[in-house]
Design a protein around this nucleic acid. Structure first.
Lengths: 350, 350
DNA sequence: TAGTGTCGCTAAACCGGTTTGCTAAACGGT
DNA sequence: ACCGTTTAGCAAACCGGTTTAGCGACACTA
């Protein structure tokens, strides 16, 4: 590496080494086609000049980017603050790394997902929290980018990974019912538009979980009262806020079913501020089983879903489609959920 | 969008619309240079064909990728499991988004950071946890990619963002000393090689914090005994493990200074398993003040550092350098830290 | 001595866009 | 009727690599 100035191009190296561009390219990508001395000479010159092949040009010529896109309808900033998403990305990263792929996060640019997708230099996309009704996406990605859907399987032509939300929710509700609870508050993830925010879709995650809760309650002869379903943001604050709204509305449950661990933690905090003791006065069940869940006070009873694995499976399905082509028929994977009982739930005492 | 098959190229659209490639390009990027009807006609044809300009080609022609790289020496998978990193990324994302930039995570590919950097299609790089002695990097990035360093400022020609680790650490130690503690165990982040793992460098984060601890203890007339400094991974398990090793070695401190919140939480758990009560039998201080810290039991006394802001500032410095050119003289920003006293520390009782 | 491979390297086409420079037609003013 | 400006659109060069087809030199076979 020597003089500053504009970055050297392959032609500069070729000239300096007294060979053709082809030779320089071969020296890096196909050394067998050159004599050993020529290769070392070219490499030396390249080093001296500080030459680094322009990755963009290389990918254009090769027609592949070795990059996977992770597509979400939320802003990047909110994504990273979501431990669920971090765990998911971890899974994707793991699988991508194994095959030498890099990761590129795609999220609305100036509010437009379409714009962001248009810009993204990726070989394929893992879409999470995306609903089929997202108009832009369906149409854009139909234009030929391999994609796998997570937490939604209503796009026929794409692979997908889902989790058995309904069974998990049912198990959670049955657990509470089994402990004698009959007055249960449900903290749902916010509205139709923002349902897409968490892993969600129009008939999405929230609905599936709600269906699970409802089924269990119904079987126990408990009506699912709509005023006992409160929606909020899927965050600690959102959970605290939702609980406060319910409380203000005069609702006094003996247990809470929260659709996310963060909301459960928030509700716990808010309940304590009202003087309630968890779990004696109020049992709380979360959903997802993020790392936090085991370490809060009290350790949270929650529905475990294999988030990391979900990401890894999604990435592997995508890589498979990239490798064999979109023509292949898509795969659909469903992973299990299970209830993890910790210390935030106990027998109802009224 | 119509037939499947290979994705349509700009030439296909041009042919179908009966215009030149130039016209198609203008229709998207420079509509003013065409008549309104022509623009709509071209756009219609493009829609019908499902045309999406190839982003790679576009960036090659334009010479910029509108993408920021986030460079770390750790594997992607471990990064995302680190809440510190998530918060940091959130800050970077925020700033990048504002200017319409996307994010691309660069981490060792098959163990080689160099390889990964060579592949990365980015306009600049935010490097975190990178030491100046990282040979590859210095040399590669010297080859012309704008870069800003985080938690390290020993590369003269690059901008940097650091945090006042030493002052934060001193405040933490003074807090404990003020509570009467004299037998203090320090949980450090693991060894020289892996020091780079967390935000760290050879004379890096760990060393700076250790210096802060040491300074405060010394002023109180307490010797910093090297067997009271135990290193471990910067995770909950790493913290638990480090505490157990110290305990097994017969060390019985009245307080712990941990260099990360995760380690503090792990140590807390391990101490409890030994029957200790926190904070009465053992005070614990963390570092970083991640979200978790306020919600664990007991709420953790810790040194707050503006992680999110660190990311945002780093991104803004980088964007500035991309905009004005690397010629400009680099900026160096130092952000403050401060001690947040919660419930995990109390007066020494022996 | 001619024929057949193999080796080492190169010229030119190609990837799929953007951008520059130019031309022909339409327009406006006098 | 004439000339100077716009306007609308095109051809070709360019971005910086990779890859194909092929060429000359040399060695080996027949």
């Amino acid at each position: 590496m020597e003089r500053a100035g504009p970055r050297p191009r392959i032609a500069d190296v070729a000239r300096a080494a007294g060979v053709s561009k082809t030779a320089v390219s071969f020296a890096f990508n196909n050394p067998d086609r050159l004599s050993a001395e020529t290769v070392t000479r070219i490499r030396d010159v390249a080093d001296r000049l500080g030459y680094r092949p322009n990755p963009v040009a290389r990918m254009l010529a090769q027609g592949q980017t070795m990059t996977l896109g992770v597509l979400t309808p939320q802003a990047l900033a909110v994504i990273f603050s979501n431990p669920f998403f971090a765990l998911f990305s971890e899974g994707v990263a793991q699988a991508a790394e194994d095959l030498g792929y890099e990761l590129h996060f795609i999220s609305p640019l100036h509010g437009s997902l379409e714009l962001a997708i248009g810009r993204a230099m990726v070989d394929g996309v893992v879409a999470i929290g995306l609903s089929a009704d997202h108009p832009e996406v369906g149409q854009i990605l139909a234009a030929g980018l391999p994609m796998v859907l997570v937490d939604s399987d209503d796009l026929r032509e794409h692979s997908s990974v889902v989790v058995d939300d309904e069974a998990g929710a049912r198990a959670a509700a049955e657990h509470l019912v089994g402990l004698g609870h009959r007055d249960i508050l449900i903290l749902a993830v916010e509205g139709p538009q923002s349902a897409a925010l968490l892993p969600g879709q129009p008939q999405g995650v929230s609905e599936r979980r709600l269906r699970g809760y409802g089924a269990a309650l119904e079987r126990a002869g408990i009506a699912l009262r709509s005023d006992h379903v409160i929606a909020g943001r899927a965050s600690i604050e959102g959970g605290a806020d939702a609980f406060q709204r319910a409380w203000a509305a005069g609702i006094r449950p003996t247990a809470i079913l929260a659709m996310s661990d963060a909301m459960a933690v928030g509700a716990t905090r808010a309940a304590r501020e009202r003087g309630l003791h968890i779990p004696d006065d109020l049992s709380v069940v979360g959903f997802d089983d993020i790392d936090l869940a085991a370490h809060v006070d009290p350790p949270l009873t929650t529905v475990h879903q294999p988030i990391r694995e979900k990401g890894a499976v999604a990435a592997r399905l995508l890589l498979a489609r990239i490798a064999v082509g979109t023509a292949q028929r898509p795969e659909r994977v469903r992973l299990a959920t299970d209830l993890v009982v910790r210390a935030s739930t106990t027998r109802a005492n009224r």
